Simulated scan of single mutants.
Amino acid sequence: MIIGIDGGGTKTEAVLGREDGTVLAYAAAGSTNPVDIGVHTAVERLNSLLKQLLCSCSCGENEISALYAGISGAAGRELSAQLRDGMAACLPHAERIICTSDALNAFYGELGGRDGVALIAGTGSSAFCVQQGQALQVGGWGYLIDDAGGGFWIGSSVLRAAFRAADGRGPETALRGLVQEKLALPLQEGIGRIYAGGKRYVASFAPLAFAAAGAGDTTARAIVETAAVELALLLAACAQRFQAGGQIDCVLSGGLWRAPLLCTALKRQPGARGYRFVHASLPPVYGALTAAAACTGAVQQEEFRTRFSGSLAGFRAACDGQT
């Protein structure tokens, strides 16, 4: 048996399955990013997910041969080791436990062991350049330092534009009305709610930029275009690591890529030239499970993908129905 975990900045998904891709158990929780919630809380949530998986399919912990966890905020060696050791206490007989960045989950799900780039645009933004099995992080240093082009960055840009318009310090924009509508409060009275909501709540305002830009709002269009420029800078930095003139596979992962405007804006940037873009067709936890299977020496065939997608759907629907 194998386990794959995708721990994003907002939601964590975990699956227990066979090495042929069949999902036997599924569990979900909130963020497991150790930078945001602390290592202790992250380990507690991860181990709670592991216990749920084992319990729901009556599987003993000694039956787990490999676990692969891609966790937001766990790209650094120290944090990844702390999370790995914490999960090892719950699965002491597992032969392989790997913990790394969640950015690689979608990459492995789409490209497997091939070289390429993962470009993530979710709550934050980052890129990973993968060559010969080694991953190099570019960007993604957190919202306090630099995650330009990500959901928090776009959301804060939306809020800034709305409040500046209300103050008379910036041009009038449709974002002002959209923000007030989402808050269901006058702008000034919504400040407490925004700060209490934190990073993820601010990121939830990002879709307003795409809605207003699609309707022709100049300010919103500028925000989307600047986001695309910043994301393309990540690609340009990654391209320097590859041989000039060759086409580079790039997996686009993260909720922001559901916005066609952002995809279109990215592809017209100079930094995006030379890339072949692939949209992740399955959830990132699929990539985590394929990586866990690879740890056991199992070779993924097309049947692995088919079995995974067919068996996961029912578990997800049941989980969503309980929330």
Results as ranks from 00 to 15, higher is better:
residue 282 L to R: 06
residue 271 G to Q: 04
residue 215 A to C: 07
residue 284 P to I: 04
residue 257 W to C: 09
residue 291 A to N: 00
residue 268 R to N: 07
residue 197 G to S: 07
residue 235 L to G: 05
residue 270 P to A: 09
residue 271 G to D: 15
residue 265 A to M: 08
residue 305 R to P: 14
residue 217 D to M: 07
residue 266 L to R: 07
residue 304 F to Q: 10
residue 236 A to E: 09
residue 276 R to T: 05
residue 220 A to D: 01
residue 272 A to C: 10
residue 242 F to E: 03
residue 269 Q to M: 08
residue 216 G to E: 01
residue 216 G to H: 04
residue 303 E to Q: 14
residue 212 A to K: 02
residue 232 A to I: 15
residue 277 F to D: 05
residue 211 A to H: 08
residue 247 Q to D: 10
residue 292 A to K: 00
residue 266 L to M: 12
residue 200 R to Y: 05
residue 298 A to E: 05
residue 294 A to W: 09
residue 219 T to F: 04
residue 204 S to K: 09
residue 281 S to P: 10
residue 281 S to L: 11
residue 303 E to I: 15
residue 198 G to L: 14
residue 272 A to P: 03
residue 269 Q to K: 11
residue 273 R to M: 06
residue 210 F to M: 05
residue 229 V to D: 11
residue 212 A to M: 15
residue 213 A to I: 04
residue 255 G to W: 06
residue 229 V to W: 03
residue 229 V to F: 13
residue 297 G to D: 11
residue 256 L to I: 01
residue 240 Q to R: 08
residue 305 R to D: 13
residue 215 A to V: 13
residue 237 A to G: 07
residue 300 Q to N: 08
residue 220 A to C: 05
residue 223 I to T: 01
residue 254 G to H: 01
residue 251 V to T: 02
residue 243 Q to Y: 04
residue 267 K to Q: 13
residue 304 F to L: 13
residue 273 R to Q: 12
